[in-house]
């Protein structure tokens, strides 16, 4: 088993309370399924869309990152999967895809000593 990070990009705004609830329930169901199949290493967190960016040798602190709505990282999860192909397959179940968002699947670098 290898580790992967799922980064959820794009803001989801279902247009009614009913649809929001349905959408949230889909996320719960998806996580539950991943969990029961032993794929969740760490459920991770939702991230606020606002924050600060610290950059450069001068350590300039600015508001940001002000990514476009579709690129905002809204949360992340640590996943266990056989390989990258398998991890990407698992990401296909993510409800964010129905809301026009995307899942970035990144292998965690393995350090062999």
């Amino acid at each position: 088993m290898s580790e992967f990070t799922f980064m959820y990009r794009g803001r989801e705004l279902p247009e009614s309370p009913e649809k929001m609830q349905k959408h949230m329930e889909k996320w719960r169901a998806w996580f539950k399924e991943l969990e029961s199949n032993g794929h969740i290493k760490d459920l991770g967190h939702a991230l606020e869309s606002s924050g600060k960016v610290v950059a450069g040798k001068q350590k300039v602190v600015s508001d940001g990152p002000y990514a476009e709505a579709k690129d905002v990282v809204g949360g992340y999860t640590l996943i266990e999967a056989k390989d990258l192909k398998h991890a990407a397959e698992l990401a296909k179940g993510c409800p964010i895809l129905e809301a026009g968002g995307s899942v970035e699947v990144r292998p965690v670098q393995q350090v062999s000593m």
């Binding site: 309370p17 949230m24 459920l43 809204g74 949360g75």
Partner: peptide, 14 residues
């Protein structure tokens, strides 16, 4: 408020 609920609850549960 619902947007926040959606974002937080999907990770932390209801």
């Amino acid at each position: 408020a619902f947007r926040r609920a959606l974002e937080v609850w999907k990770f932390r549960g209801v």
